[in-house]
Nucleic acid binder design. Structure first.
Lengths: 196, 196
DNA sequence: ACCTCAATGTAGCCACCGTCTACAAAGCAG
DNA sequence: CTGCTTTGTAGACGGTGGCTACATTGAGGT
């Protein structure tokens, strides 16, 4: 084995990858910098060269999480051969899927938004959510959604999705019914956002 | 000063009160059992007589939180001299108010639901939410909400509220617009849940 | 080719934390 | 009064995050 040299060469990324894995699998609280360093095979103080403190690492994780979420959402949005409602359900499903599969990561992502000095996280969040605003505009253009400020129309829709995801990951709603719950929330949301 | 005796007499409750305060003010992560014991003026191992470990204390806190939430919701529901929509907005406001004022506590409350051996928390949660189910039934009775399974009708409504609260506490949506956002989400929710 | 120097990793320390166990004090039931 | 249970205390252990001083490395200028 090419016993790596004194300098790792890729420490930051490897730390992030490992950290994301243990966060997703065992929760934020279970993430220990020292344990992480041990797993990667590096001294306990090495991570400090790349992350000022534990919170900085968590912020970076959140940023990366928003990037992943953005990819998922854009992927779900890509095929544009469907009716608007169907596309909406597809994007909603992608969002709820991500939220339930990465529950702990999502909590981290939203935790970061209000912390000071986390502009990078906020920027990543905006980028991830941009597709949703486009979808709302599209719905307005084709007459499926009420006209007016896109935010006013989109916020109730997004709140429903986010709330559903949150209730699913909290165990308030049973995960087995995920599919039908998404359908129900989407349908109710679209009715509520329809032109009147 | 009546220097209290060896036995405190009311340790458990005082620990819970102090703990809730620091959780609400500084977040769950900032809660330290030792610091708590110091504040109450008791040895660092004393809390262990009342809470098996830190998680047990957090569970008790969650349980107490659901009790408080239930009181708020029932209070908002009590005056029944209004039209259904107005009552709904009032209850929704009470929920979002609680969620934003006790953001960290709420996170704790929902964290508990999925943890093993926390039936007491689940029971408290059910009790807190019971008023909401009653309100939905009432809306169905007076024709403001679609008939059918109360859960199918109520879940999208509740998801919207919970999501809105979550987005507000995360800082995704600005707290200053709380009032108008509640109005918007309530209106959209009611339209989506109306008979068709 | 050499030398400097910034970047990166290491080793050891500190205070703090949660948990465990052995012990002390207080209340209570007979 | 006596013994037992409850409640609080004291001290120890391993683990953690953060800090500082030091070691190693690689890259760029001469």
């Amino acid at each position: 084995m090419a016993t790596r040299a004194y300098h790792h060469g890729n420490l930051r990324e490897e730390l992030l990858d490992r950290a994301e894995r243990t966060v997703v699998e065992q929760g934020v609280d279970a993430l220990s910098l020292r344990e992480l360093a041990r797993e990667v095979g590096v001294s306990h103080a090495a991570p400090r060269r790349h992350f000022a403190d534990r919170d900085a690492l968590l912020d970076a994780l959140a940023e990366q999480g928003f990037a992943r979420l953005g990819v998922q959402l854009r992927g779900a949005l890509l095929p544009d051969d469907d009716a608007f409602a169907a596309r909406y359900v597809r994007v909603a499903t992608a969002y709820v899927d991500f939220a339930t599969e990465h529950a702990e990561l999502l909590a981290l992502m939203f935790r970061g938004k209000q912390r000071p000095g986390a502009e990078a996280v906020a920027v990543a969040a905006d980028a991830a959510f941009r597709p949703l605003f486009g979808l709302v505009a599209e719905g307005q253009a084709c007459g499926a959604l009420a006209a007016g400020d896109g935010e006013d129309v989109g916020i109730p829709l997004y709140a429903g999705l986010h709330g559903l995801a949150s209730l699913l990951t909290a165990g308030v709603l049973p995960a087995e019914r995920r599919g039908e719950l998404i359908e129900g929330v989407c349908a109710a949301g679209l009715r509520g956002a329809a032109p009147r």
